[in-house]
Amino acid sequence: MLHAQAWQPIVTRTPLGAINQRVVDPFDRLFLQEYPKVVAIAYRVLADRPAAEDVAQEVFLKFHRSFSPDSERASGWLHSAAVHSALNVIRGERRRAQRETAHALDPAQPLIANPERLVEEAEQRREVRRALSRLPQRTAALLMLRHSGLSYAEVATALGIKVGNVGTLLRRAEEALRKEVNRATPE
């Protein structure tokens, strides 16, 4: 069994009121409001900051080409696109391991007294993402949206399911992930 690393919040959000007063263009306003969540979702899936930022860019560009920023469905679409795009990356990706190792040793990262621990944690994250990529897409998407900090209502909107079903599906998804991780890393 892999040992667990303490969860840390990763997002500092700008107050929406401040954005609304400052930014006139509707797309820019939507971007500034939703980018922290979109990139957080992609980052939670990929555990790779540059890759998550790339996914977030692609998601917003695709949105810009196809939808009005005033659409009431904008947030749900962005969250859904972020998680599915990121999951598609881990399913198809073969180069992530090298990138993440490079990221782990990024000199811009705070100095850490124990580099061996850092490498071990990076390996653990890779293992979990490999397990994640083997789950059904919908199961993995629900799991990652919730663990990226979205509320049950936001998860339901992004996936087109009832809020009342999120708890049950989440519970099953967590069990499925743990089984998959344990299967891959027997004691």
Binding site: A4, Q8, I10, T12, V39, V128, H147
Partner: peptide, 10 residues
């Protein structure tokens, strides 16, 4: 904990 990632500020 399994899904934890290092912190970063977008």
């Amino acid at each position: 904990a399994l899904l934890g990632v290092p912190a970063f500020e977008p």
